[in-house]
Simulated assay, not measured.
Amino acid sequence: MKIATYNVENLFDLNKNGYKYKEYKPFSKSLWNKKNYKIKLQNITKVIIDIDADIIALQEVHSIDALKDLRLMLKKNGLYYQYYKITDKKPTAIHVAFLSKFPFIYTKELQVTSSYKYRNILEIKLNIDGENLYLFANHWKAKSGPESMRITSAKILRKRVQEVGNEKNIILLGDFNSDYEEYIKFKRKRRHNDTGGKTGINHVLRTIKQEKNSFYNLWYDAKEKDRYSYIFRGKKEALDNILISQSLLKKGGISYVKASIRNLDKKYLFKKKNIYRWQVSRARVPKHKGKGYSDHLPVIAKFKINTN
Rank of each mutant, 00 (worst) to 15 (best):
K291F: 06
K155S: 08
V96C: 08
L14F: 06
A57F: 03
T5D: 01
E60I: 08
D88F: 03
E123T: 05
F215Q: 08
A137I: 11
P91A: 08
A97H: 05
L72N: 11
D52N: 15
K225P: 06
G253R: 04
L157R: 07
S214R: 09
T45S: 12
K35Y: 06
I86M: 00
V96S: 01
Q246G: 01
S28M: 06
S245A: 08
L135G: 00
K25H: 02
Q210P: 00
T87F: 00
I56D: 03
Y37L: 08
K117G: 03
S63D: 02
K125G: 10
F104L: 07
K291E: 15
G145Y: 15
H203E: 11
A259T: 14
R158W: 08
L99C: 05
D194L: 09
N15S: 14
I128C: 11
A66K: 08
K2Q: 10
K159P: 02
Y24D: 04
K90M: 08
Y116A: 13
F176I: 14
L31P: 00
K266Y: 09
A66Q: 04
K235G: 03
K289E: 08
K25L: 13
L110E: 12
Y183D: 07
Y116H: 13
W278I: 09
S178P: 01
M73S: 15
I55P: 10
Y80N: 15
Q82Y: 02
S100L: 11
G196Y: 06
N263G: 15
L11G: 02
N10L: 03
T92I: 07
T45N: 05
P26C: 13
F27Y: 15
T195G: 13
E23I: 04
L41T: 01
S114I: 00
K75H: 10
N193P: 04
K198M: 14
K185M: 03
K85M: 01
L135E: 03
